[in-house]
């Protein structure tokens, strides 16, 4: 509770520090506009046109439904890999054999291109929610798993010894000694897993479903509707940036104050 309060208290200061990033975004949009002036509206619609299309889309209840469908799939898929990856990763980290055995499996999971998973999932589950959710899980699970595994593998034996010398009860050992260390590994893994899930969900939808934002992107492509395609991309990037910079980064800063 104290912690949440501190995050809120520091939030305005954090936002104020974001002017540099906002300037960078505007610079990017300016370059985009240069591209538009060089190559024309069909290849690269101007930022203004894209944002106008975006505004129209956001006022359209059908588009909102599509967004919700995508959000649902990403949330379920990521939620499952978050829970599964964290628990299994922690467990594997506590046993040397398990962590040795899981390494090659993780390499296989990471090395397998998501597009191959999508093809397999389409054969296994057909065209629908399951295919997308499955692909999201296989793509983001290894990231979370490795983060949790690293967190437990790298626990400091010296600090354990110190905790023993003060006869720390088990709950204090967990809260004060193990958890902060593990969290500092697992939290960044959650963040990159989320980014991964958000990208994969669109790709899987584009190939394997008839609804959701990915499917809208496929429709926009077939109609050569570049402004809509770009508007969807803006929604994707915008939501990712919102998650990362407005929600996760302030938490991360507070949690990792003690780091160098």
């Amino acid at each position: 509770m104290k912690f949440a309060f501190k995050i809120l208290k520091d939030f305005p200061g954090y936002l104020w520090s974001g002017w540099g990033s906002i300037a960078a975004i505007f610079l990017f949009i300016a370059l985009w506009d240069v591209g538009n002036q060089l190559y024309g509206n069909l290849v690269l619609p101007s930022p203004l046109e894209t944002f106008k299309t975006l505004w129209l889309m956001l006022n359209d209840s059908e588009v909102i439904t599509e967004i919700n469908i995508t959000l649902y799939r990403a949330a379920v898929g990521f939620g499952i890999s978050l829970a599964l990856g964290s628990v299994l990763g922690l467990l594997a980290g506590f046993f040397v054999t398990a962590s040795m055995m899981s390494r090659p499996i993780v390499t296989i999971l990471v090395g397998m291109p998501p597009i191959a998973w999508i093809v397999l999932a389409m054969i296994w589950f057909g065209m629908g929610d399951e295919t997308v959710i499955f692909t999201v899980i296989v793509a983001s699970f290894p990231i979370v798993f490795v983060g949790a595994l690293q967190g437990t593998r790298t626990l400091d034996g010296d600090l354990k010894e110190m905790a023993d010398s003060f006869n720390l009860p088990w709950h204090m050992k967990f809260v004060d000694v193990y958890f902060p260390h593990i969290f500092s590994y697992i939290f960044p893994a959650w963040v990159s897993g989320l980014g991964m899930a958000w990208k994969i969900v669109i790709m899987a939808e584009l190939l394997a479903t008839s609804d959701g934002m990915g499917a809208s992107l496929a429709v926009a492509r077939s109609q050569l509707d570049t402004p809509t395609a770009l508007a969807i991309v803006v929604i994707m990037i915008g939501s990712l940036m919102f998650m990362e910079y407005i929600i996760l980064e302030p938490i991360k800063r507070e949690v990792e104050l003690w780091r160098d």
Partner: peptide
Amino acid sequence: EGRLLPWK
């Protein structure tokens, strides 16, 4: 070496 908890 001290062995302080770095997060406290």
